[in-house]
Every structure is written in structure tokens, then in C-alpha cells.
Computed example of a mutant assay.
Amino acid sequence: MPTIRILISGAGIAGLSLAHWLHRYGFEVTVVEKADGIRGGGQAVDFKGPVHRGVLTRMGILDAVRRAHVDTADAALVNSAGRRIGTLPGAFAAGEINIRRGELVRILHHLTAHTCEYLFGDEITSLNQTRDGVDVTFARAAPRTFDIVVGADGIHSSVRALAFGPESTYVQHLGYHYALATLDVGDDDVMYNEPARMAALGGSKAPAFFVFASDESARDGEPAQKAQLIDAYAGSRWRVPELMAEIPNATEFHMDTISRVSMNRYVHGRVVLVGDSAYGNALGGYGTGLALVGAYVLAGELYRARGDHETAFSRYE
């Protein structure tokens, strides 16, 4: 098989899984990631069923993932006075194997850290498809040409926007936001709900986890997003005022809309999407498994087709 040069945008679960399989099958792989390195932290993600276990086994990481398993405890539901009024079973949001996202990314990156090229702190700025390849420009690196470009860069994929069109065409905001924050709040698993807003502490998602209703888009930049969260919880009861007072100093913070990606095609010429960029299912408990399996199938079809992207992409879809 001739050397096929493949660029993957995004060093998350989908991108790192795909990099592993493509290198294993003899492709030349470059991964570009706008963060300065592999991003740690994040909520617990899960695997369930024989398909997930089968792919993890074939990757050779099932035992490592199992060793990193974190238990998902039952959460106490409390009222505004802090009195327990119910229980949310840990199994409700868990799979057979639960692992912190950051730990999973570390395991996946270890597979290709020394065999694939990584461009950290950079991102794709343009794609120009020709008969023979894709001419790519970057924010920092010199322009290059690849045979195939893969968008594995999440629900707000820049590759999807460049190749398929604006995000608004494919991403539906479902009316809620979620936020994850690292706060010193104790270890008890507890959840408090009011109409249109929820606060949970000590669970597997993050030390502090919030969901609130809003039709507004997530603001740009962490300080603005922290202010947006604080505004959304104004007047809330229980321990929420105390938590909001700590948000400006949260050491790790992530906020986004709860949205769904809906696409009829995952392919545009030599550009293909995988994971949340193509079939995102935010907070539904399936995104990690879909990313893992999607990467496995895409790489397998490219190998099976000996790099013929048209045949492989048709089978992948």
C-alpha cells in the first residue's frame, strides 16, 4: 500500500483512538490540537457492552482502563434546607467501566506519543481540496498537503465548519447548559434541584456539576462563562450562593451548551468526521463509546480499502 498521509484535527478520545489504529495499519499520521498539550481533567466517561470491551481489548488497553475505574456512588437528593428527600442511584449515570476522561486520554495518547506526529498549540485555518489531496494551512505551522483530513475536534468542530458549512446548520441547542468546576466542596455525593437549574457535588462528573436552562449561547472565554453561570443561579437556595462565590476562583472550569449534532453525511470529498463532530450526543452517556467505535470502523475501512478514501468512506457511513 502506498504511503497515505492523514491529518487528524483533535487529540481527544476519537482523534487519539483513530491515530492508534491508523498507525497500526501503516498510515502516516499527524494530529493537530489547539491546546498546548493533552488535556486532563473532565468528567467520568463510561464503556458498556461487548462491542466497547471488544474494541478496548483489540487496542490492548482494556486492563489499563479497568485499573482506572472509578465507582459511581448513589447521590442524595436534598431540598433547600439540605434535608434528604430521595436518592439518585449511581447506576443511572454509569456504565460497566467508568473512567475519568483525562485518564482515558492519557492512556490513549501513550499508544501513539512516539509513533505519530503531534502539532500542539495549533489549528487548521483553511482546507482546499484538489484531485490529489487536501491543501491545509495552520495558524502556526507551515502549509502542508495531506491525502485525507479527519475532523475529530468535537461538537464545535472547525473542520466541519470549513468543509461542510456553519455550525448552526448541524448543531441543535437543546435549551440547557452544563458546567464542570473544581471546587473544594467536600466528598459527599449530593444533588439539589430547582425549576430550570441543578447543582450536584462530589459525583463522578466533577467536584461541582451544574445544569441550567437557557436559550443563550455559551459566552466566549472562561471569565465570561463563569459570570454567565453566576448570573443563571442568582437567587438560588441551598448551598448555591456559597458555590457561586467560589466559581471565579475555580481551578478547572468548563461550560458548554447541551446540544445535538445531526448530519446526513459524515464525508465531504477527502474530509471525514468522527466522534462528537459527526454524531455528538452530549451528556447522553454514549459519546465516548461512539467515538471509540467510530474511530475503529473508520480506520478499519481505510485499511480494508488500501487507502482508497471513496470506497472506505462509503463503507464507514
Rank of each mutant, 00 (worst) to 15 (best):
G82D: 01
H156G: 14
V149W: 12
A139F: 06
T137R: 13
H177D: 11
Y118G: 06
T115I: 06
Y176S: 08
V190E: 02
F92C: 08
S80G: 11
E123Q: 04
A141N: 15
G165I: 13
L119W: 14
V78W: 10
N98A: 07
G90F: 12
H114M: 07
T137H: 05
I107M: 03
V190C: 05
Y170G: 07
A113E: 14
L183V: 12
D189Y: 15
I148C: 09
V149M: 04
L88R: 14
F164A: 04
D132R: 08
V150E: 04
R131D: 03
R144W: 09
G82A: 05
T72G: 00
F92Y: 05
A94L: 09
D71S: 13
T137F: 06
A141W: 09
H177A: 04
P143V: 08
A73P: 11
I85C: 08
F120W: 12
Y178E: 05
V78S: 05
A93V: 12
D187Q: 10
V70N: 02
V70K: 00
T72E: 15
S168T: 15
G133K: 05
N79P: 02
T130V: 01
V159K: 08
L108T: 14
R101E: 05
T112V: 15
G90N: 07
T145Q: 09
V136H: 06
Y118Q: 00
A161Y: 00
D187I: 10
S126Q: 09
A152W: 08
G186D: 03
D187W: 00
R131S: 05
T115E: 03
T137P: 02
D187V: 14
T130R: 06
F120Y: 13
E123K: 04
G86T: 12
F120Q: 07
V134W: 10
V78H: 10
D135R: 13
L104F: 10
E167K: 06
A73D: 10
D147I: 03
V149I: 09
Y118V: 09
A75I: 01
H109Y: 15
L104N: 00
N98S: 08
R131L: 02
F120L: 07
A141K: 04
F92L: 13
A142D: 09
Q129G: 01
E123H: 06
P89R: 05
A141S: 15
A75D: 07
A94C: 04
L119K: 06
G102T: 08
I97T: 11
F138L: 02
I107N: 00
N128L: 03
N128M: 12
R106H: 08
I155C: 01
T115Q: 00
V190L: 01
I97V: 14
S158A: 11
G102C: 14
A81L: 15
A152L: 02
